[in-house]
Amino acid sequence: MKKLLAFLFLVSTLIFNAQEQDPKAKAVLDDVSKLTKSYKTINADIVFTMFDKDKKATEKPQNWKIQVKGQKFKLEIPGTVIVCDGKTLWNYNKDAKEVTIKNFDPNNEDQNPSTMFTMYETGYKYKYDKEQTVAGAPSNLIDLYPAIKPEKKKFHTVKLAISKTKKQIVQMKMMMKDGGTQVYDIKAMKINTEMPDALFVFDLKGFKADQISDERD
C-alpha cells in the first residue's frame, strides 16, 4: 500500500500560476484532467516494478487492480485489499488475517489512491520532456517536480508517459532520491463500466479475519 501511496503523493493547497509552468506540458495535462474527470468509473490493471540504482529489478513485478467511482475505490495488491465507500476505509492484510477500519479522509495522501489519475494538478511543477513510444503507444513524456516541501519527499522526479491518442497515462516512473526507480505500467484501463456501490463496502464474510482493529473516531 505504501508503495502506491508514496507515488500518489498529491493533495496540497498551493496551486502554481500558469506562467510558472511549462505551457506545452500544461496543455497535455489539462487534456488528461478534463477527460479523466468526465469518467464515471475507472477500472485499471497496473504492473508495479521496483529497480535499484543499477536498474536491476529488486523483486518480481506485482499485478495490481484498482476500481474507482467518485470518492469510492477498491484496490487489490498482493496480500492486501483496500476498500473505501467514501466515508469508511477498510484495509485487509491477508497474511496477518487482520482488518483495520478507519475514517476516510480524501485529502490524506496516505489514504486516497484514487487520486492517482489526477495527482499532477496541484503541488507540482512540470516540464515537457519529449515524444516517445511507450508500451506501443506514441506518448508525450512529462516530468513532475514536487514543489511543496520537496525535502520531505523520498523522490525527486515523477515521469509521466501520456498516450497522444487516448490522452491517458500509460506509465509513471518515480525517481527516488536513493537512486532507485518505481515503475507503474497501466496495462489496461476500462472506463464507465457498471460498478455497484456494494463493491466498495468491505464484507467480512468473504475474508478470513482473526483480528479487527476499528480506529474510527
Rank of each mutant, 00 (worst) to 15 (best):
V11S: 15
V11L: 13
S12N: 11
S12W: 07
S12P: 05
S12G: 09
T13A: 15
L14M: 14
I15Q: 07
F16L: 03
F16E: 00
A18G: 05
Q19V: 08
Q19N: 07
Q19L: 12
E20C: 02
E20F: 06
D22V: 03
K24G: 04
A25F: 05
V28H: 04
L29R: 08
L29E: 01
D30P: 10
D30E: 14
D31S: 15
D31P: 14
D31Q: 15
V32I: 07
V32Y: 08
K34H: 09
T36H: 05
S38A: 10
K40S: 09
K40H: 13
K40A: 12
I42P: 01
I42Y: 01
I42L: 01
I42V: 04
N43R: 14
A44L: 03
D45R: 04
D45T: 14
I46H: 08
D52N: 02
K53E: 12
K53F: 13
D54W: 05
K55T: 13
K55C: 09
K56A: 05
T58A: 00
T58R: 03
K60G: 11
P61N: 02
N63I: 14
K65M: 06
K65Q: 10
I66Q: 02
I66A: 01
I66M: 04
Q67G: 08
V68Q: 00
K69P: 05
G70Q: 00
G70N: 00
K72V: 03
K72Q: 06
F73Y: 08
K74S: 07
I77W: 14
I77Y: 14
G79N: 05
T80Q: 10
V81Q: 07
V83I: 09
V83S: 09
